[in-house]
Nucleic acid binder design. Sequence first.
DNA 1: ATGAAAGCGCTAACAC
DNA 2: GTGTTAGCGCTTTCAT
Lengths: 362, 362
Amino acid sequence: MSRVAAEKPITGRKRQRVTIADVARLAGVATMTASRALNRPEMVSEELKGRVLHAAAELDYIPDRAAGGLASGAGLALPVLVPTLHHSVYVQILEGLEERLPGAGYQLLLGSTDYSQEKEERLVEVFLGWRPSAVVLSGLDHSERTVRLLRASGIPVVEIMDLAVAGETGQPLDLNIGFSHAQVGGAVVEYLAACGYRQIAYAGTLTEIDPRSVRRIRGFQSALKRLGLPHHLTGRSDLPSSLAVGRDLLSGLLSAHPKLDAVFFANDELAAGALFECLRRGVRVPEDLAIMGFSDEEIASHLYPALTTVRIPRHEMGRLAADLLLARLSGSLNGQPPIDVGFEIMQRQTTRTPSLPAQEKP
Amino acid sequence: MSRVAAEKPITGRKRQRVTIADVARLAGVATMTASRALNRPEMVSEELKGRVLHAAAELDYIPDRAAGGLASGAGLALPVLVPTLHHSVYVQILEGLEERLPGAGYQLLLGSTDYSQEKEERLVEVFLGWRPSAVVLSGLDHSERTVRLLRASGIPVVEIMDLAVAGETGQPLDLNIGFSHAQVGGAVVEYLAACGYRQIAYAGTLTEIDPRSVRRIRGFQSALKRLGLPHHLTGRSDLPSSLAVGRDLLSGLLSAHPKLDAVFFANDELAAGALFECLRRGVRVPEDLAIMGFSDEEIASHLYPALTTVRIPRHEMGRLAADLLLARLSGSLNGQPPIDVGFEIMQRQTTRTPSLPAQEKP
DNA sequence: ATGAAAGCGCTAACAC
DNA sequence: GTGTTAGCGCTTTCAT
């Protein structure tokens, strides 16, 4: 009973947090019994369990996770770092993660890096202070310090949205689930070439900063070379992706390369912007120009003409990452090699049908 | 070098966390001095400060926020609950918040409620366990328990995206920054009526579940009544908003009310979907039908024709919420009444020009 | 099955 | 300035 409370006559002032000690007192048991009743009910008699649960409800008791974590040494937080929330891809990956992780008691901590390794490093530092049980990172490329910190922490790490391939990318820190961007670039070129296009451009933002873009372009260009097609057609912008930038990119490309017949954009937003610009200019798609996007966001299939793009399994990537993480955390997973979730070209109306000659208005 | 390592003969096993005690030992000072050097540098001599900082860097020391919070009683987390991350509105509000809050040492904890009060309640419960220093909520309508829990916690709360108005909405829990949805509904009707439209419909999702939608519709309908216009034209869907649902909503409305001449959609995504459907059907916008959205997301101005919509100051709302919160947390703010950030009708091409007769293709 | 003591990593409060 | 002590709220021992 009593504790100290009796000694401090009515502090009154600041609303005191309800602690497990309060619950225990109300239930007439030891603190430890209350703790057990709440966390490992099977270790406590029905009788006491009932009293404790009742008392907890009565007091609206909410356990202090920080204190619990401190005492048990357990990690509670699970930081997820994505480059941006403006691409629905990442929102959907998050949803995939959220399907499993919070249920297992982990709290997702969200951070956006804006495609900057420095910002990523700072976030990792902050989040590491929250006793994370694991970390989810986007991409395979991180600052030295980020890598060192993460290694030293000894916690599981999952890198998503890119695939570690020997010789092409660095080694993954730990778990890795994604797809090969180089492969995407190559596949798109092959597809467009099969459609009969010959003057094929790549257009994107952060083309030299974001390592995934770099690899996508590399795959794109080497496929072009292999096929004996011009591989110097590129549109770049350093602004963040937006419909407006997509339009500008298209305009720039069109005036720089009048003979252009196909453009692969780094994401659907840029492609959609370009499509809108074509509409205004009276450029016919796909008769005059083919446009391809990347990601298969919702808008792609609703545009008119509907956008040919590359589907990546974002939701699945999130779910899979969560599952692997859970397995690893429970100790039942070791030495898991990188997992390729692949991608798929979604053929729609902004490109001609492959292997067929150009067609006029369908 | 050496550190304690020598005393515990190679625990080897699990990587030990670097604590402030380790830093202090390396620097040859008391733990408390190390703590001060790190957190209140002005209280420590240059000499020792240097040694401590050096030691911390040397060891890659990362303070344990949970332990720090526990000891100081300070809140560290700052939960933000939004209905969804799929509307860029909320992403931008988040960005507004992130401009200030993390800099001030607070960690944003993100939760999405899916427009459900039950889910909101569960999230509040979870987040309260993280010793939040404040909470940001979307909307003014919460479950009883949510309100009770929040009240009992005694921490500041900001409700955004809706405006408390006596007689119309409930009282705000604490701080409130937003705009009146009823007023939006009314303003849209007045605008459309001024453009000469007479058969004006509202179309949205969750029309009876989301209290903000309910109030928007209420304002919409009473304005119609006031103007003597038909006010029963409504399209509803219980699916989450998407381009596809926008198209369906339009189709349904068109066949139910052939004389329809204007539709106000609950968000830009629905409106864009409807616009795409019009394109396919050959319905001319705005000649045959006016379309209006809500939110002014990026796509609105890039659509063709560009979408008339209602701009709400999301970024500003986030920033303002952060500022107020910071002020309140520092104790320099009391009894702040609700703040109306307003809204603005962005006239573009999917509606005729107000007060002018219908115009043919411009 | 239950309880008492100790301590997680840190900082407020009080010495010196 | 700097060090010492106590204790945040909880859970891990280790008794009983």
